[in-house]
């Protein structure tokens, strides 16, 4: 098996907040992994480690054979060109038009002219189901459209790995499902390895080849959607069934 991303015993704390406590996860080239976890379980933190936005206090994150914490700034940036990332609220640059957002990476890292970049941007936007909005500003778009533009930006440089930070959060169920379909399409058409974090079980079942459950800073179980659905682990079971009663300690709630 061809391991593309290897997260090994990653620990991370912020001040007195011990978020990751020895997380382990291997991601194979071409697969679609969903990391499930509750709010505040550290899944965003884990995702940010994969692209080197955060570095582990202890442990290693290896992508395509290179240990991220050992790379200098230039090599890290080279490696990041293999990634595309869709942020939770899309994180579009609000000072730029839609096509400039989509073409940002191309503008900076290729020699294409503005005209060519705009053509590519329009093409990528069509890919995510958007037409005729390339000259609008991000502030004029709805939440669902912004996410699509964010996805177009993430795929503009033809990445090998796509990271999704809560792709369906904050969208209505129909738009959320449309985004799920897009994620599946990205994987099937573009053969991209994808890692998504979410607490949306429905979305996870739909887009994942493999689901990993993050609890208390550790990956406590991984398996196919079917395995997870029929899990015997009480914590995972409680989470996928969405019950407030069970072994999971809910922060700030006394029983």
């Amino acid at each position: 098996m061809n391991t593309l991303i290897n997260i090994e015993d990653v620990h991370k704390s912020f001040g007195s907040n011990y978020v990751l406590r020895g997380a382990n996860l291997k991601i194979i080239k071409g697969e679609s992994v969903v990391i499930l976890g509750g709010s505040g379980s550290g899944k965003s933190v884990l995702l940010k480690h994969i692209i080197g936005l955060l570095m582990p206090d202890k442990g290693t994150v290896t992508v395509a054979g290179s240990d991220l914490s050992k790379l200098d700034e230039n090599d890290l940036n080279e490696l990041r060109k293999k990634f595309g990332m869709l942020f939770q609220a899309a994180a579009l640059f609000d000072s730029m038009s839609v096509w400039e957002n989509v073409g940002f990476g191309l503008k900076r890292h290729t020699k294409f002219s503005d005209k060519e970049i705009k053509e590519i941007a329009v093409e990528k936007l069509r890919h995510v189901g958007l037409t005729g909005i390339e000259d609008r500003m991000p502030s004029d778009l709805s939440g669902g459209m912004r996410k699509r533009v964010g996805l177009a930006r993430a795929i503009a440089m033809e990445p090998e790995i796509l990271l999704y930070d809560e792709p369906t959060t904050g969208l209505d169920p129909i738009m959320a499902d449309a985004i799920n379909d897009l994620i599946i399409e990205m994987r099937e058409k573009l053969k991209i390895t994808s890692v998504a974090i979410t607490h949306d079980i429905k979305s996870a079942y739909k887009i994942a080849d493999r689901i990993a459950m993050l609890y208390n800073g550790e990956i406590i179980e991984t398996g196919s959607p079917d395995n997870i659905r029929n899990t015997l682990n009480p914590i995972v079971k409680q989470f996928v069934e969405g019950s407030a009663v069970g072994p999971i300690v809910i922060e700030g709630l006394k029983r």
Partner: peptide, 14 residues
């Protein structure tokens, strides 16, 4: 706060 600075980094821009 809207993660645009992180987005810059993911687009290989310091």
């Amino acid at each position: 706060v809207t993660e645009q600075i992180e987005a810059l980094e993911t687009l290989a821009t310091n």
